[in-house]
Design a binder for these strands. Sequence first.
DNA 1: GAGTTATCTTGACAGTGTCAATATAAGCTA
DNA 2: TAGCTTATATTGACACTGTCAAGATAACTC
Lengths: 215, 215
Amino acid sequence: MNQKTSKKTSSNKSNYHHGDLRSALINEATQILKESGVEGLSLRKLADRAGVSRTAPYHHFKDKNQLLCTIAEQGFERWQSDAELIFNRDDISAQQKYRVFFHGYIQYAADNPELYDLMFGRTIWKQNSATQALKDVAFPSFQHQVDMTKSWQKQGIMPSNENTLRLSQVTWGTMHGIARLLIDGIYADRTHIDEMCDCAVNLFTRQLSISDEVD
Amino acid sequence: MNQKTSKKTSSNKSNYHHGDLRSALINEATQILKESGVEGLSLRKLADRAGVSRTAPYHHFKDKNQLLCTIAEQGFERWQSDAELIFNRDDISAQQKYRVFFHGYIQYAADNPELYDLMFGRTIWKQNSATQALKDVAFPSFQHQVDMTKSWQKQGIMPSNENTLRLSQVTWGTMHGIARLLIDGIYADRTHIDEMCDCAVNLFTRQLSISDEVD
DNA sequence: GAGTTATCTTGACAGTGTCAATATAAGCTA
DNA sequence: TAGCTTATATTGACACTGTCAAGATAACTC
């Protein structure tokens, strides 16, 4: 399929109007992002790929930031549905669930490095440029992590003597840190991801049977 | 001091040659970085601030990346000397040293957010653009973390049943993750830094007196 | 069929990194 | 001191970037 001619069924009168430019832009942008990161995603290249002029995207997104936020939104939604699947499993113990969740988080980041960078990176958050729509998806996702931590503490999987908020910040921080070191190219070797995750989970959940029994 | 006139003692014949442009550029660039991050650091603005033409910096740095690597180098050197001070203390126990080290790491990141981002961020590492000089400072710094972990295990501060490399990756990952969440604007509230650090240190070093005694 | 609105276009501007060609002056050698 | 070499700085240019303003086109509404 080439861009200029087959917008609508090829013999159509005109393609001055694209028809479904907004979603075409999102798809194309997600693709470019995957290929070359935020740095490689320019609106002009994007417009070109979609077969429209440079400024056409501005009729669907206020600016580049708004487009990026929209893509990040989708990233959160996808991760959240992945996580749901894990939490809803009833074939494994709660402790195993935590382990799978941890692995799943890192795997999601490793599988979608550029998307993860967009979701949690400074491009959006540092300059405080998250749209309301993005916040509405992201904040509950953060909160969910806290809720789950509380539940893991209650179930005796995590130490109950630590403050829940601090504990969830630390455990999330660990996942985030490992993810970042991986996707930013500092841990080059990805074959040890699983071992790293296991090690972390061991540290957070070990020895509970000895000294941190549920009350 | 203003830029154009007081390059050399003010009544000097000419200022076609700056005299010490290289270090002037590094200083000015470090300042701009601190104020507005990598995104806000342009070579043209930098040259302007230093009172030279746009392309003058290219006689001292091959390109923008090389300048950034030089600044990152200094960041590693400064952190390393900070860390040395901690490790050389003999007024506190080894376990307390680890706690101070952890807090110190996060504090360094929080105090120099943009520098930390440059040192450990994707700008340099993701595109594999670190200069040899930078690698020569950074890699030993990473390795040092592993060596210290081994020593902490031997001293019974950290669990000795975990693989040293994995353990150091996880503990470093945790520090890095907390640092990143802070400097990228995701943990807005910095008043809880100390509590977070304490929580993490507790998790990594707790209960050793019970079940993980040194052999 | 006329008018409104959504969509898309070209033109323009200021900003970026970086190359090539040129100018200046400092340093070295004879 | 004169002349040559080399380090340093300059202007001009190019290809990019995000984004605004003004105008063209076509779809939707009455």
